[in-house]
Design a protein around this nucleic acid. Structure first.
Length: 272
DNA sequence: GTGACCACCTGGCCGC
DNA sequence: TGCGGCCAGGTGGTCA
């Protein structure tokens, strides 16, 4: 399940392999992957566009083409595979880009949740999907004052609020558990009751956890991969997926509960 | 404005 | 062995 570190890892691989290549043709096996514009227009416009760069904003990949930006969200299980011409297609490869070096970039998504948008270059700064996003974890404007203001009316559990992409981008279910564990915050605590010290911890640990995860290539859980790379951060996880195991800090047993419909792992002693 | 709930999807797992 | 039901979770839409 790609979160910011996984998307950043994918971005680096794609940028390295795709820069300068031209999309010569495209095959769409699952039309709903294209959310905007209509798939016919999407195909017509993207053919013969050169890939100049690949960027990231939150969990969105942004392909910088000649006349357009291709936005790609991997959602739960989306990933990109590099294949040679003629390689057998698997049934989960929904979009195939035929490239000018006679290779293929294939978008694979087992659960078909991922979506793509092709927008005019002039629209990037005002496009709603990106406009609604909050600050990147390393943005200088991500401060205690900012979080306090955003959280002041949020009675929701902090676990649910840190997943809110309109406040801080890139945190998903796995890293939310890790960040709250390192911050010694109970995931059920109301966001509007967090102290300045706790907000500071969230900011610091968000940066630390995501930075380490990127350095290790993300977290490989079930299906994430980026080209030939598999993440190694899963070895560093302290609570996520550790139900009924001993907490590495205090020895208490890690619990699993549901918060906002999400599976949530925490240590009852470290996160009172 | 806020929060709860549901839909989108498929594969893996579990119990029967 | 086969079947049905549940679970996983990021995001958007709807409704109270």
């Amino acid at each position: 399940m790609p979160e910011l570190p996984e998307v950043e890892t994918v971005k680096r691989v794609l940028k390295n392999k795709l820069s300068g290549l031209v999309i010569k043709n495209i095959k769409l096996n699952y039309a709903k992957t294209i959310e905007y514009p209509l798939s016919e227009i999407f195909i017509k416009n993207i053919i013969n566009q050169k890939i100049n760069d690949v960027k990231r904003r939150g969990k969105w990949l942004i392909f910088d083409l000649d006349d357009y930006y291709l936005l790609s969200h991997l959602r739960m299980e989306g990933k990109y595979n590099f294949k040679s011409n003629g390689d057998l297609e698997n049934k989960h490869e929904h979009v195939i880009f035929y490239l000018s070096d006679n290779t293929e970039l294939r978008y694979q998504d087992t659960r078909k949740f991922g979506r793509m948008h092709l927008i005019n270059k002039a629209d990037l700064d005002t496009y709603s999907k990106l406009l609604e996003l909050g600050y990147e974890p390393w943005d200088d404007q991500l401060t205690v004052k900012y979080l306090k203001d955003k959280y002041k009316n949020k009675k929701l559990a902090v676990k649910s609020v840190v997943l809110d992409q309109s406040i801080i981008v890139g945190i998903g279910n796995i890293y939310a558990d890790e960040i709250l564990f390192l911050s010694h915050i109970n995931p059920l605590k109301s966001a509007n009751l967090l102290t300045d010290k706790e907000l500071t911890s969230i900011i610091v640990n968000t940066k630390d956890v995501l930075t380490k995860a990127i350095a290790l290539g993300g977290t490989t859980i079930r299906t994430f991969s980026a080209g030939d790379n598999h993440g190694n951060f899963q070895d560093q996880l302290l609570v996520h997926g550790k139900e009924k195991q001993a907490c590495l800090v205090c020895g208490d047993i890690i619990k699993k509960i549901k918060v906002g419909g999400r599976g949530t792992y925490y240590c009852p002693t470290c996160q009172k």
